[in-house]
């Protein structure tokens, strides 16, 4: 097993009036090459969990193992393990500090002993992966970009590191639909080519539906569901319980079903839902 999470508990500000239990006894296993989505309302512990997976701070109790070794263990081991996990933060704009987009993305690469040409190739590749044109943005100052562009630069700097485990914390928030689709397609394709492990945190059920095969749902720091993506994502009572909306195509199909129509409900995309309604209504596509 690539990643093992054992009895992971995390309490912020322990022993103060602001003490807050963010994760409670979480147990999980993630195999190499899996594509996993993490779903849950704000405050359910998603960002805490992925930051612990990336070894950014120590949990209150419990362990995170990467190929059997603790990512919070001895410093030398932990540092080696942490290099294999790339986490793109939920609010990446706060993490940007270099003077140009190129230097920002090249920053982490400098620790990898790469040749100059290889660094340039990776920076360009990473910018294209996130839908930015290297020629147009590489020499610009990161703070002189629009908010959405800045988030993509931060993400590119993680992709450029080619981590074995890629974790994206709400990567599509604040992106337009084309940017979002391109990003998900590119990351999905890259995952299939390399067989890396992909973990995505998102509230956008339709994003998860196209990208992951398994979904873990969190509520108040506990795992409340863990199963095949389509099953978890169309489980209306579960989604209602954790305060998430079903995607509109699913909501429409559920409403039609309540009105007595015989339709499937696990269609997340408008094209799928339209085809399902057309089938149930016995429509023939007009070929023009």
């Amino acid at each position: 097993m690539l990643i093992q999470v054992e009895n992971l508990t995390h309490i912020y500000s322990q022993g103060t009036p602001f003490e807050h239990v963010a994760l409670r006894e979480v147990n999980l296993e993630i195999a190499a090459g899996e594509r996993v989505g993490i779903l849950g309302p704000t405050g359910s512990g998603k960002s805490t969990l992925v930051q612990l997976l990336a070894g950014l701070f120590k949990p209150t109790s419990g362990r995170v193992l990467l190929e059997g070794e603790s990512i919070h263990g001895k410093e030398a081991t932990a540092r080696r393990l942490r290099l294999q996990v790339g986490l793109a933060f939920q609010y990446p704009e706060d993490q940007i500090f270099e003077q140009t987009v190129f230097r920002e993305i090249a920053f982490g690469l400098r620790n990898l002993n790469l040749r100059r040409t290889e660094i340039e190739a990776r920076v360009n590749w990473a910018l294209e992966m996130v839908g930015l044109n290297p020629a147009a943005v590489a020499q610009r100052m990161p703070f002189a970009l629009s908010g959405g562009e800045r988030r993509r630069v931060a993400l590119a700097s993680i992709l450029a590191m080619h981590p074995r485990v890629l974790i994206l914390d709400e990567p599509t928030a604040g992106q337009d639909s084309q940017g979002r689709r391109a990003l998900l397609e590119n990351v999905g394709r890259w995952q299939r080519e390399t067989g890396m492990t992909l973990i995505i945190v998102s509230h956008a059920l339709e994003d998860l539906a196209v990208l992951v095969e398994r979904v873990i749902a969190l509520k108040e720091g506990r795992v409340v569901a863990d199963g095949p993506a389509r099953q978890v994502l169309s489980d209306a009572p579960l989604l209602l319980d954790i305060g998430l909306d079903v995607p509109e195509p699913v909501a429409l199909l559920q409403a039609l079903r309540q009105a007595g129509k015989n339709v499937r409900v696990d269609c997340f995309l408008p094209a799928e839902a339209a085809a399902e309604i057309a089938r149930a209504w016995g429509l023939q596509e007009i070929v023009s």
Binding site: S177, E248, L252, P270, A271, A273, L283
Partner: peptide, 29 residues
């Protein structure tokens, strides 16, 4: 590069299947 609201998108697709739906369809209801 913009999407339609999902319901508007579904409505437009269903029109190409020959269903006649009013232009004002915006919500699930």
């Amino acid at each position: 590069g913009l999407d339609l609201p999902p319901i508007v998108d579904i409505a437009q697709r269903l029109r190409t299947w020959g269903l006649s739906l009013p232009q004002t369809v915006l919500t699930v209801q």
